[in-house]
Design a binder for these strands. Structure first.
Length: 433
RNA sequence: UGCCCUGUGGUGUAAUUGGCAACACGCCUGACUCUGGAUCAGGAGAGCCCAGGUUCGACCCCUGGCGGGGCAGCCA
């Protein structure tokens, strides 16, 4: 009995699994995180979500649902100079509209600013971070190039106490913007540029949408992201390909801090659609320069735009499922997006009829004084939706396109001598016109 | 010319992980007097980037090439 059940489950879940789900299956079988599966969707609130984000949302939240796990929504708000609350509101609305729910898992990277700061001091105490005074320009020169190793900053050898003192004073606001940074002490000779003593804190006096003016130093993405994932106990941190080279840094941060949990970062290829702009920067430009009427302009590939355009959440979710998940960069044909909405609309949209370009038809053998109401099925695929009544009489109108005086080959609609069926009504034949 | 990733029909994604390639979209043909942008039935289209190697046998393993993408923000 139990064997049967097991086999059934196996065969039912035998549908092609993408490599991420395969990794999760494997982790579950090796009991890596027990039975826990916790993902997260971490948008930066600096723009509206677009169809590309939808793929990531469906992936992350989809996994949360399938594995009986959860998915957190975490706003990655570590750069106050470009983030706004208008965006966090729109992002939440769009995710809900797509049909997903983060439950109690709503967070902001800024929720962790205090803890992040503590971790930074710990790094300094461990001799793994130092305060650097190189200018942005100098730092770039010291970094080396893709083919040449970098040079160590002259400030790299500072003592722990001095670093700690300086970092505290950075936080206290004693130094001007850009004058100092806190850097991880890793390896200036690394072939991976992300490991050449990356900046983890910068001084920036900007009003933060949540913490106001409490801080004048803000953590960098790599540092904040790894630790935020860790603090939430994320098991699988799914992101796009361009962060692949950042994974060693992600791991270095958690390993060096010897954190109690260490999420696994997994990268997949983002969605690309032909003829479609998928860059937040460019979409932002379209909006701010007034080329379109806002982020929800129906011409925009944003979730809000698609919604106004008439797309349904189902259609978008189906698209995400159809395009799959893999690591190779690809460009999906918009025809697939269009197919998804046609399919969904064909299945669920309620039909009504209208004659745009009318052509009068006289049913010569139908009584002049009679009128009856025909049942028009609202949606043939969903008969439970019932029907509505439409009058039928001697005189009625059809679409001009449905008639051709001289039919071309293959024309099956009304033409002299031809008999056709009037949908949901009678057959009729044309004698004169 | 450093490091990382990637290379299967037109476009995407698969192949129970060594036994000669499936699914979806698109395309073509036929059927249908009730949405012809629908439905149903068929079909064409890749021999898996290339070259060696291992093996009875490789899309799946090894070696070497070639192609595509990413990385030098105090952005994410």
């Amino acid at each position: 009995m139990s064997d049967e059940l097991e086999n059934k489950n196996i065969s039912e879940s035998a549908a092609p699994r993408d490599f991420i789900r395969q990794i999760i299956d494997e982790d579950l079988s090796t009991w890596k995180n027990g039975t826990k599966v916790l993902t997260r969707f971490p948008p930066e609130p600096n723009g509206y979500l677009h169809i590309g984000h939808a793929k990531s949302i469906c992936l992350n939240f989809g996994i949360g649902i399938e594995y009986n796990g959860k998915t957190n929504l975490r706003f990655d708000d570590t750069n106050p100079s470009k983030e706004e609350t208008e965006y966090v509101d729109s992002i939440m609305e769009d995710i809900r509209w797509l049909g997903f729910d983060w439950g109690t898992g709503l967070f902001y990277a800024s929720d962790y600013f205090d803890k992040l700061y503590e971790f930074a001091e710990t790094l300094i105490l461990k001799g793994k971070a130092f305060v650097c005074e190189l200018s942005a320009d100098d730092m770039r020169h010291y970094r080396g190039t893709l083919t040449e190793p970098g040079k160590e900053s002259p400030y790299r050898g500072r003592g722990i106490d001095e670093n700690l003192d300086l970092f505290r004073r950075m936080k206290a606001g004693e130094f001007p913007d850009g004058s100092k940074t806190l850097r991880a002490k890793i390896d200036m000779n690394s072939p991976n540029i992300n490991l050449r003593d990356p900046v983890i804190y910068r001084i920036m006096r900007a009003h933060h949408h949540r913490t106001g003016d409490n801080w004048c130093i803000y953590p960098m993405y790599d540092y904040a992201h790894a630790l935020s994932d860790m603090l939430e106990g994320i098991t699988h941190s799914i992101c796009t390909l361009e962060f692949e080279d950042h994974r060693p840094l992600y791991d270095w941060i958690l390993d060096t801090l010897e954190t109690p949990c260490h999420p696994q970062q997994i990268e997949f290829a983002r969605l690309n659609l032909n003829y479609t702009i998928m860059s937040k920067r460019k979409l932002n430009e379209l909006v701010t320069k007034g080329y379109v009427n806002g982020w929800d302009d129906p011409r925009m590939p944003t979730i809000a735009g698609l919604r106004r355009r008439g797309y349904t959440p189902e259609a978008i979710r189906n698209l995400a499922e159809r395009v799959g998940v893999a690591k190779r960069e690809s460009i999906i044909d918009v025809a697939l997006l269009e197919f998804s909405i046609r399919e969904d609309l064909n299945k669920h949209a309620e039909r009504v009829t209208a004659v745009i370009n009318p052509l009068k038809v006289l049913i010569t053998n139908y009584p002049d004084d009679q009128e009856e109401f025909m049942d028009f099925t609202i949606n043939p695929e969903e008969p439970e939706k019932g029907s509505r009544k439409v009058p039928f009489s001697r005189e009625l109108y059809i679409e001009r396109e449905d008639f051709m005086e001289e039919p071309v080959k293959g024309y099956f609609r009304l033409f002299p001598g031809n008999e056709v069926r009037l949908r949901w009504a009678y057959f009729c034949q044309m004698y004169r016109f």
